[in-house]
């Protein structure tokens, strides 16, 4: 197990290195950011001075070398716009993204797993016919549409929830629903398929021959088995959500790293873009690693295999 984790961490470091390299060169393809940083009437000399100050006049590979050395020291440079450390800016916004992601994930799980279970257990019955279209609807509504719809209904028409900003549970509700809707639909689908598959397994029949009630069969036997594939899906969704929700954060003016991404790309704030990508990737990789470890805890078969072979 320990060796497995070490290997995965080395892999993670390599992935991060690759991601940072790509992002470093891609942002520099967008042109000189200095033009966006100086006032409109700035002279060519001003621009040249600032360009030199930011080191953007040096050869690209030279810049890249410095970039790598700085990263090894945990330094991603200063924001061009806010003259604060880029990583600090991102980490300052990150808790907001975490708050929204967790809340959206909880919202979706609370509905998705029961929906998956009910539509599997009552397949062919009215419950399934009622819930499946709802799931399809949730999956096909893009956030920019469902978000604005929710704002219109709950913030503009009924005025019971704030339309934007952060602070308190109330402000969290609409963005969580908007963001969680699509996650909800995909997790509901996966759990439905998973429950359906487990219900036909031989061990379910064995449990029935013991005299187990349907409730016991479900809770004690089927549920844990059915959750295994769901956990993988939830992990991927969680990793996505933690990377920042660009559209939802924009709609609700939520100060997370999704919004920061848009702002920093728009203003060509290279160090912040790089820091956002670094943090989002690291979180993505770590989330998936924790899911794998969790899987190993729940499924004894995985535990053995890992120790033996990988």
């Amino acid at each position: 197990m320990g060796r497995f984790i070490v290997r995965r961490l080395i892999q993670a470091a390599l992935s991060l290195f690759g991601v940072l390299t790509i992002v470093f060169f891609v942002v520099r393809l967008t042109g000189n950011p200095v033009r966006l940083l100086v006032p409109q009437n700035a002279s060519a000399a001003d621009i040249a001075r600032l360009t030199h100050q930011l080191g953007l006049d040096r050869p690209l590979l030279d810049q890249y070398g410095t970039f790598l050395v700085n990263i090894l020291h945990g330094n991603l440079g200063y924001s061009y716009v806010q003259s604060q450390p880029a990583l600090g800016i991102v980490l300052g916004r990150f808790p907001n993204t975490v708050e929204l992601a967790i809340s959206a994930l909880c919202f979706s799980l609370v509905f998705a797993i029961p929906i998956g279970f009910l539509t599997a257990y009552f397949r062919g019955k009215w419950i399934e016919r009622l819930l499946m279209p709802v799931v399809a609807l949730g999956q096909s509504m893009p956030a920019f549409w469902s978000g604005i719809l929710l704002v219109l209904v709950f913030a503009v028409h009924w005025r019971i929830l704030p339309s934007s900003g952060q602070g308190g549970i109330k402000a969290l509700i609409l963005p969580s629903i908007t963001l969680g809707m699509i996650t909800l639909a995909s997790i509901a689908r996966i759990s439905r398929v998973s429950f359906l598959e487990q219900l036909n397994k031989d061990y379910v029949r064995t449990a029935r021959t013991k005299g187990a009630s349907t409730a016991r069969v479900m809770v004690v036997h089927v549920f844990r088995n059915a959750l295994l594939p769901v956990i993988t899906m939830v992990g991927l969704e969680a990793a996505n959500l933690l990377g920042g929700a660009v559209i939802t954060e924009e709609i609700f003016a939520w100060p997370g790293i999704g919004q920061l991404t848009v702002q920093s790309v728009q203003s060509s704030d290279f160090p912040v873009v790089e820091a956002v990508v670094l943090v989002a990737s690291a979180v993505y990789i770590l989330t998936n690693l924790s899911v794998d470890l969790l899987y190993g805890i729940i499924d004894p078969r995985v535990r053995i295999k890992r120790v033996g072979s990988r």
């Binding site: 397994k201 031989d202 061990y203 029949r205 064995t206 449990a207 004690v220 036997h221 844990r224 088995n225 729940i298 499924d299 004894p300 078969r301």
Partner: peptide, 8 residues
């Protein structure tokens, strides 16, 4: 092989 619950 499959008649027992693999997780219990």
């Amino acid at each position: 092989m499959v008649a027992l619950n693999p997780l219990m």
